[in-house]
Amino acid sequence: DIIVVALYDYEAIHHEDLSFQKGDQMVVLEESGEWWKARSLATRKEGYIPSNYVARVDS
């Protein structure tokens, strides 16, 4: 799995977006363009995230 960590807070604009806080970790489910589908490890919610707001966690 690709794990990313939030670099900034993000408040969902559309209902399919995923809100998150700086430091939150998410599993990337699908990478396509600038918006990635991800699942929050904390809340288990899924939605689209702006890929420029996150960084990959080296395992």
Score class of each variant (00 low, 15 high):
D1N: 13
D1P: 14
D1V: 14
D1M: 14
D1Y: 14
I2A: 08
I2W: 10
I2C: 12
I3T: 06
I3C: 07
I3Q: 05
I3H: 06
V4D: 00
V4Q: 01
V4I: 08
V5T: 07
V5K: 05
V5F: 08
V5H: 05
A6V: 02
A6R: 00
A6E: 00
A6L: 01
L7T: 03
L7E: 03
Y8G: 04
Y8I: 07
Y8W: 11
D9H: 07
D9R: 05
D9L: 03
Y10L: 03
E11D: 11
E11W: 10
A12P: 07
A12W: 02
H14Y: 10
H14N: 11
H14Q: 08
H14C: 14
H14M: 08
H15L: 13
H15G: 11
H15Y: 11
E16D: 15
E16F: 14
E16M: 11
E16Q: 12
E16C: 15
E16P: 04
E16A: 11
D17E: 15
D17V: 09
D17C: 14
D17N: 11
L18V: 03
L18T: 04
S19R: 05
S19V: 03
S19H: 04
S19G: 08
F20M: 04
F20Y: 01
F20W: 01
Q21N: 11
Q21D: 06
Q21F: 11
K22W: 04
K22V: 09
K22N: 04
D24S: 05
D24P: 01
D24T: 06
D24I: 02
D24H: 06
D24V: 04
D24G: 02
Q25Y: 15
Q25F: 15
Q25P: 05
Q25W: 15
M26N: 00
M26L: 13
M26H: 02
M26C: 02
V27H: 07
V27E: 09
V27Y: 09
V27T: 07
V27N: 04
V27A: 08
V28M: 04
V28S: 01
V28Q: 01
V28W: 02
L29Y: 07
L29P: 00
L29Q: 05
L29E: 04
L29A: 03
E30G: 08
E30A: 09
E30R: 08
E30P: 03
E30C: 15
E30N: 11
E31N: 15
E31V: 13
E31K: 13
S32P: 05
S32I: 13
S32D: 11
G33E: 06
E34I: 13
E34N: 13
W35I: 08
W35H: 07
W36I: 11
K37C: 12
K37W: 15
A38K: 01
A38I: 06
A38L: 04
A38G: 04
A38T: 04
R39G: 02
R39H: 07
R39W: 09
R39S: 04
R39Q: 08
R39A: 07
S40E: 06
S40M: 15
S40G: 04
S40L: 15
S40A: 09
L41V: 10
A42M: 11
A42L: 12
A42C: 11
T43F: 03
T43P: 02
T43V: 03
T43N: 09
R44N: 15
R44F: 15
R44T: 10
K45E: 12
K45A: 10
K45I: 09
K45V: 08
K45H: 09
E46D: 06
E46C: 11
G47Y: 01
Y48S: 05
Y48H: 05
I49S: 00
I49Q: 00
I49R: 00
I49N: 01
I49E: 01
P50S: 05
P50Q: 06
P50V: 02
P50R: 07
S51V: 08
S51C: 12
S51Y: 10
N52E: 10
N52G: 12
N52R: 12
Y53R: 08
Y53W: 07
Y53M: 12
Y53D: 02
V54N: 00
V54E: 01
V54L: 04
V54C: 06
A55I: 13
V57T: 09
D58V: 12
D58I: 12
S59F: 12
S59M: 13
S59K: 11
